[in-house]
Every structure is written in structure tokens, then in C-alpha cells.
Write a protein that binds this DNA or RNA. Structure first.
Lengths: 341, 341
DNA sequence: TAAATAAGGAAAAACGTTTAACTAATGCAT
DNA sequence: ATGCATTAGTTAAACGTTTTTCCTTATTTA
């Protein structure tokens, strides 16, 4: 590897001078600068970041801890974070936790990720994932400055999340504006805080519209297709079935539609369905599913930008909430005038 | 930050001794080791990887260049690579190219990624992405040892890919084994080599079965839903429409099914559809789509393992091909006895 | 013209490790 | 007792930078 010494020798100057033209830390004459630059490019010099960091004690590295890189939501956030930070001279070190179950955390993996990040002297870490049931545990394991993206952390931490309450209101408003009066929900896993926020947001609109959300219209789901399918069947067998269903993610929305299909009901003519997440399956389903889009890229950018500010010591709101957007497709329509029971 | 000096002072030994107990590079007495270990944990010492790398000239860092981290195929590969390499003490530095169009490469981004990787003295890079039209260009830009995952590189490079030819054969065999005789293909973008391999593989089975694949049954697609929808309509309007369609990815398979639906055809009763990729949309569609699963995780593991061998100087086959698996769901059935024209 | 100032460049120390070379102490055979 | 291995530990140099301090030469000013 060619070092600053090689460059200095070829240019006939001292290494200090080379460093100065490299970093612009001191004025050098045009003539010398010329010589040095030529040597630099002739030798194809690449600075050694290890030596640089070691000396300057400024480790321009930031850790990204992905709770599960395979989750639909993680890649767009990483994309944004990576782009933003790379552009600003930071190197990003990736750790993936591969946490499949939300209740059981792989402690060992989190610890070893921390070790990696600490020893590479990462300035801090951006944690990407829902994290809900484990936030305080995770927090206690991470010893460097951390910012949570895509989850709402504790009061004392920094987090960038989307507004679940408002998003659910958007879903509800869309449905009631179409004239629906009997609307059911299939929820996500109830051990996650934001699921309750979604329920509350939804309910607030229902109440404002003078309608009610009876308990038998709120069916617990676990984010997965199969349970959602079963719950939909229950709903459809009710004496007074709903005319619209809000599924808290798109896979479950697909299941709702499949179940309707099975029951001989057409979507959206006989029943309206609205999903959440704007995953690809919602776009490609027949009918295409109306859903809520989470601003993932924006969350990533906000996380990266905020994190840099945090490192600069700038004051920052502890919690930032971004808005979701309703994505209208084909699975919502007005209810039939005289609903077939 | 606590350094090896602090530890040495607290333990009352020299820094060399601390280093030796840290790395097991020399025998130290049980008593001394005890003292040092106590100091280590009392002070919560974390080695400075920059200093370590600088001195030992062994930079245990490997770059991962993701062509597009948002592609469905990238995250599982990163997951595998990251896990395998982290376990073995390597730090992974991530760069994302965010290449949306396959024809136009963002040169600047690739260059700056290389800079990052070079200056962090990454031992090499694993490139994740299809890369097809740009392989040789990319190759010329990357100056460190590189291994291509999820694409077939040039002869002189190392690559881990899946066997497109065999995968397409699997699809074709499944269809002919169900009794289909008129089978059409909607292809991916034709500027990508592997698309042609898929066509050839498919054709080989058709021929072996004594059937033919007329040109009007091979419709060019571009991986996207809309064009696939249009092409399906063309196919369905043919005097002698196919009884089965092979779409080269799952989004297009969804489009095929939507188009059938529009034409009043039921899948799989009236027409069978087989996809490719095993994306989530194939599982959640109604009917669930039979498709080919790419061994993404395995590609990642193979890539990481091979890369480490490469660095060790071990001999390696230049091209490794992994097998896809047929995932049977609901979109394929035997053709009607007397096909309705 | 001499002195003061400015400008450009060099020398050297430091960052936190690893590791080769060295030293001191112990045990063993002669 | 003497010398020689062996063992346990220390010293110090080196890795490739940045940065402070210092030196030399040129330029300005009185």
C-alpha cells in the first residue's frame, strides 16, 4: 500500500506538507501543491482510515443495527441512512440481529453487535426496527449514543417514528367518508404499543362520526395471514357482519380478501378492505389493496440527519413523528345500499 | 476511552502482557492472567480496532456493495453474509448503490463507494446484485478482490449465482407433468443474459416432451406488472391461447392472473400460472402462486464462505451455481380436457 | 540598510496497538 | 558450584496519519 511517505518522497517534500495539501489545513504554495497532487495521483494514494482515525481520534463511523434486515420496512430506511451518511463522509458498519420472534430477543447477538460497534469506535448507532416489547432492554445493552428509527423509544431516548394514531385515523376517515357504518378491525400483535395507538386513533374517528366500534368488531391478529383469515371468517359469520375491514398490515388484508372470496363475497362491491404498510403484495393483489404508506425513506433521512445533529451536540426533540399517506387503490368502495346479511 | 495502558497500570504489568493475555500470543502465568482479566473487566476495556488494524496490517473489514438494497433478493443475502462474517470477527461496511434502472449505472456512486472501501482497507468486497448489463464496467471500477453474489460475472471473476437454466426446466417440467401442451412465457428484460438462459432451459424441456414453443408464445416483458398484463391479454386473444403461462417473476405472475380474471378465466381451472422468485406477493395472492424459490440465504452463506477462502488464497471454482426449488401452491392444475377457446 | 514580519516548509511527537528482541529468574543436568 | 535451557515478563519500535512547534527564507517596513 502506498503511504503518505511514498507520496512525500516522490514529490520531494515532507509528509507534513502532503498532509496539509490533503486536508487544506495550512497554506502551501501553488507550486508545491502541484507537485504533491501529481505524486498523489501518480501513486494512486488512498488514505488509511485506521491511521487517520487513530491520530485524529475522530472515528467517522456510524453503526446501523437492523433488527431484521429482511423485514419489508428495513431496506428503505437503510437505503436512506446509508446514502445520507456516506455522502457526508461517514462509513456505515452494519449489524443484523435477525430477530424472528418479537418476544424473545437474541441477547448474544445484540451483545456481539455492540462489541463490534464499540471496537470500531462507531460514534453511535442507529437502531432500525419496531423493538416495542424490548425497548428498555435493548436500550440497556447499547452503550453508545443511539437513535431509534421506526420505533418509539423511551422518553429519554431519541426516536423517529411514524404517527400510528393519525394513520389509523386516515384509514377510518376514508372508510366512513365512503359511507361505511359497520367497520371491523383485525389488529396486529397486542403486545406492541403502537397497535393500541392504532386502535385508539381508529376509534376516535368512529366516535366523531357518531358510530360505534363494538368489541366483537375488534379481532386480535398476529400480523400473519392465517390467523387473519380465520378471524375474517368469524367476522363474516356474525349476525351483522361489517361492511368494511381494516387489517393492520397488507398480508392480513390479503387474507381478508381471500376469506371474502371463499365466502362468495366480492371486494370491494360486497365488502371494503383497507390494509397497512403498502407492501408489494397490496399493489399486486386483485383487487389492488387500498392501504397506508409509511414514509420509510423519510424516516431514514430524518434519522440520519438527526443523528448527526445529536453528535454535534445540537438540541433535538426526543420524539419525531412522521405522517403516513393513504394510498387509494381498488379495495374500498361505498357499501351496498341494502347490505346482504 | 480506556486503553491498554490503563489496564496495564491497574493490573501492575506492562502493556505487552496485557496484549498477550488479550490475544493469547504468549504464555502468561495464571496469577498474572487473573490480575489482567480483572482489570480488563473492571475498566470495561474495548480494544481500538483502528490501532489494532494499523499495527497488525490486518484489516478485518469486508465491504458489501448492494446494487439495490430494496430489491427483494438483497436483504436475505446480506443477512447471511453479515451473520457469517460477523461471527468470524469481520466487520462489514455497507455501501448501497441505489440503482433503479439497469441500463444506466450511477458511476459516481460506485466510485465513491470504492473510495470508502479502499480507505477503510476492506480486504475485499462482496457485490450483491444482478449487475448483468454492467458486469465488466463494474469490474473495472472495483480495485479490491471482489466476489459477485446473485449474478454471473465474467469468466475471470468469482461468482455465486443460482442456476437459471435448471430453474426454468423445473418450471417447465412441472407444467408438462400436469399435462399442459400449450405453454407460453412472459420473459424478463431481454438485455439480461440470464433471461435467455431461462428461455433455453424452458425450451429444452418442451422439446424433450415432444412439444413446441412457437414464437408467439414467447412474449417479452420487462419485469413489471403493467406490461405483463398487456402481454397476457394478447396471449388470451390468440386463436389458440395457451393453457399455462410461465411468468419470469411473481409480480408479472400476479399481472397474468389479474388479466385472466378480467377475461373471465379462472386460475388454475382455466389456465395455470407459474411465477419466479417466491416473493411475498406470490404467497398472499388468491390463488396463491406456484413459483420458483431462489436460495438467497444459501447464496449469501456460500458467498461469505467462498470469499474468506479467497482471501486465504485457497483455490476456488470461479462460478458456483445453486439450485432453485419449486414451491407448489394453487395456481397450477391440469388443463381442462376440452379447452375452451 | 537593518530589523521585523510573514510565509512556506520540515521535524517530531502522538494516537493505541502488536511483536521482535531482550532480561531476569528459575530449574536442571553436569 | 557452573552453565544452559526454559519460562515469564518487559522494553521499545513500528504501523500511517495529524498537528504543534520550529526553522528557513522572502517580503515588508521604518
Amino acid at each position: 500500500m502506498v503511504t503518505i511517505h511514498d507520496v512525500a518522497k516522490l514529490a520531494g517534500v515532507s509528509i507534513a506538507t502532503v498532509s496539509h495539501v490533503l486536508n487544506g489545513t495550512k497554506k502551501v504554495s501553488a507550486k508545491t501543491e502541484e507537485k504533491v497532487k501529481k505524486a498523489l495521483s501518480d501513486l494512486n494514494y488512498v488514505p488509511n482510515i485506521a491511521a487517520k482515525s487513530l491520530k485524529s481520534q475522530d472515528y467517522k463511523s456510524i453503526g446501523v443495527i437492523a433488527e431484521d434486515i429482511k423485514a419489508f420496512s428495513t431496506p428503505p430506511i437503510i437505503d436512506a441512512v446509508c446514502g445520507y451518511l456516506n455522502e457526508r463522509g461517514y462509513t456505515i458498519t452494519l449489524c443484523n440481529l435477525r430477530t424472528y420472534s418479537h418476544s424473545q430477543y437474541d441477547t448474544q447477538l445484540l451483545i456481539s453487535s455492540m462489541k463490534i460497534l464499540e471496537s470500531s469506535r462507531a460514534r453511535g448507532a442507529i437502531y432500525i426496527g419496531a423493538a416495542s416489547p424490548n425497548v428498555s432492554f435493548i436500550r440497556s445493552m447499547i452503550k453508545i449514543p443511539v437513535l431509534f428509527a421506526y420505533s418509539s423509544a423511551l422518553e429519554s431516548d431519541y426516536s423517529i417514528d411514524y404517527d400510528n394514531y393519525k394513520a389509523a385515523r386516515l384509514a377510518a376517515m376514508h372508510l366512513v367518508s365512503q359511507g361505511h357504518k359497520r367497520i371491523a378491525i383485525i389488529t396486529g400483535a397486542l403486545d406492541q404499543d403502537f397497535v393500541h395507538q392504532r386502535i385508539m386513533g381508529f376509534q376516535s374517528v368512529i366516535m366523531e362520526a357518531g358510530l360505534t366500534l363494538p368489541p366483537e368488531y375488534i379481532l386480535p391478529g398476529n400480523w400473519n395471514y392465517n390467523l387473519a383469515y380465520q378471524q375474517t371468517c368469524k367476522l363474516l359469520d356474525l349476525a351483522e357482519p361489517p361492511t368494511a375491514i381494516f387489517a393492520m398490515n397488507d398480508s392480513m388484508a390479503c387474507a381478508v380478501i381471500a376469506a371474502c372470496h371463499k365466502h362468495g363475497l366480492k371486494v370491494p362491491e360486497d365488502l371494503s378492505v383497507i390494509g397497512f404498510d403498502n407492501r408489494s403484495c397490496s399493489a399486486y393483489n386483485t383487487p389492488a389493496i387500498t392501504t397506508l404508506g409509511i414514509p420509510l425513506y423519510e424516516i431514514g433521512i430524518a434519522a440520519a440527519a438527526s443523528f448527526l445533529k445529536l453528535l454535534e451536540g445540537e438540541a433535538l426533540p426526543h420524539k419525531q413523528l412522521l405522517d403516513c399517506a393513504l394510498i387509494e387503490r381498488e379495495s374500498v368502495a361505498s357499501p351496498r345500499q341494502y347490505p346482504n346479511l
